[in-house]
Nucleic acid binder design. Structure first.
Lengths: 238, 238
DNA sequence: AGACCAAATATGGTCAGACCATACATCGCC
DNA sequence: GGCGATGTATGGTCTGACCATATTTGGTCT
């Protein structure tokens, strides 16, 4: 019993039973720094070599920590030199969520049904919020027009996403909007297939217009019902 | 801006500039392998040195990819030897979401209000699902009893979390349950402070029992209303 | 003076190799 | 057969080197 020199538990989210790794310590320190210095989107972190020296760890540990932050959509790294180079703080929670969903779907620890149900929940709620606040109508109308002029399924779906994202953003909640974006990203292929299968988009557009009108008239219940009907039409097997 | 929908190798975080880094290629290959071999939770990935040789990249690139997968809650690395060693596939989406929320709150790109509203949305929806299916009552009852016997605010909140998670899990949707868990993790300190501030937990327990009764009677609307009232009592400033 | 091109430089990206810490596997002694 | 010493495979970490890229700098030509 000579090896009793375990460093105490310090990290914010200590892994179960594992010793605190260097990159986790780095993560905690960077998080402290963000909090303490009040850093926000657009600010830069010191370079990797500089951080390694300051925190007394190898550069590889710094890089692993930055990779985590990049995965979580909080930093973006750019090589080169100048004001735009280095690790810049960003805010892109959506891409992180997209990866999360895709991987868990791949592992079969999440089903398409669950994804679709979540989408229905968020979209109904968002539409209700939009109906009450009366926001987002402009973006929805623009997307509606673009869908009318779409050349093919891919283009139609592109603007369809814009329509539904306009609803999500009209809720004024960046978290639900980010989750919605991830859900749509994951469902993208599904959406294209659905449009191709239906062949005709007039029914879809009628659904969209029903949603739009309900939001415009401030009728949250009607908006929720219209969305439920729409999703049921597009994804009947689920 | 959002039309950068280039599938490519299926990278998780699209590089801001151009080139795909080695670890992103590794990520894509591991993802392919999971899909192709039908790997699921519990299965192991090859060792880091082995993967490096197979994919013709340095070990550090392998490690960065594994760090990403670990961040997303799909692998867990363990040193040593034997069946439990190496990178094992897991499914822990909640912890990934917790980190995501905490960092974005730190960056002020997300507000407590948005977090609370999202929680209200999910919890109302989950309670509705639970009321319709009649599941989760046992876990809720157990948590209720435990809260009655709680010694202090910390212990009370611990079982309070169990109560609300029982609702979230009763929905049968692992995605909303995972999001709910992350939201609760982030709100933990808030919850303890609220209990301390209120001083008395009888009102909270009355709320909980109202929710429980509504779910037991299959009244989704009453359950949603009870939850709204409860959250409004606990977090009035939001 | 201005425009333009070449070298210097700072930054992330990558690799190879070495070493440590850990925990199971194996073998040999009792 | 039991049990401890040794072997070994695995992740964790550091160092140092080199590559790729983009800005900065400075010199040259017009």
């Amino acid at each position: 019993m000579t090896a009793d020199d375990r460093p105490g538990p310090g990290a914010l989210t200590p892994p179960r039973g594992t010793r605190t790794r260097a990159f986790e310590e780095v993560l905690a320190r960077i998080e402290e720094r963000i909090e303490a210095d009040g850093l926000t989107v657009g600010d830069r972190l010191p370079g990797e070599r500089r951080l390694a020296e300051e925190l007394q760890v190898g550069r590889s540990s710094i890089r692993e920590a930055l990779r985590v932050l990049e995965t979580l959509g909080v930093v973006s790294s750019q090589a080169g030199r100048g004001p735009d180079a280095g690790a810049v703080l960003i805010s892109r929670p959506g891409s992180a969520l997209t990866g999360l969903l895709r991987l868990h779907l791949g592992l079969a620890t999440l089903s398409m049904r669950e994804v679709m149900d979540t989408r229905l929940m968020i979209e109904q709620w968002s539409a209700g919020q939009a109906a009450r606040s009366g926001t987002g109508l402009e973006g929805m109308a623009r997307a509606l027009a673009a869908m009318d002029g779409a050349a093919g399924p891919d283009e139609f779906v592109e603007h369809d996403i814009a329509f539904h994202m306009a609803i999500a953003e009209a809720s004024g909640n960046r978290l639900t909007a980010a989750i919605m974006q991830a859900l749509r990203d994951v469902l993208h292929r599904f959406a294209v297939d659905a449009v191709v299968r239906l062949g005709d988009t007039t029914a879809l557009q009628a659904d969209h217009r029903r949603v739009y009108e309900a939001v415009r008239e401030g009728d949250a219940d009607a908006a929720a019902a219209a969305i439920a009907g729409h999703l049921d039409r597009v994804y009947p097997p689920l």
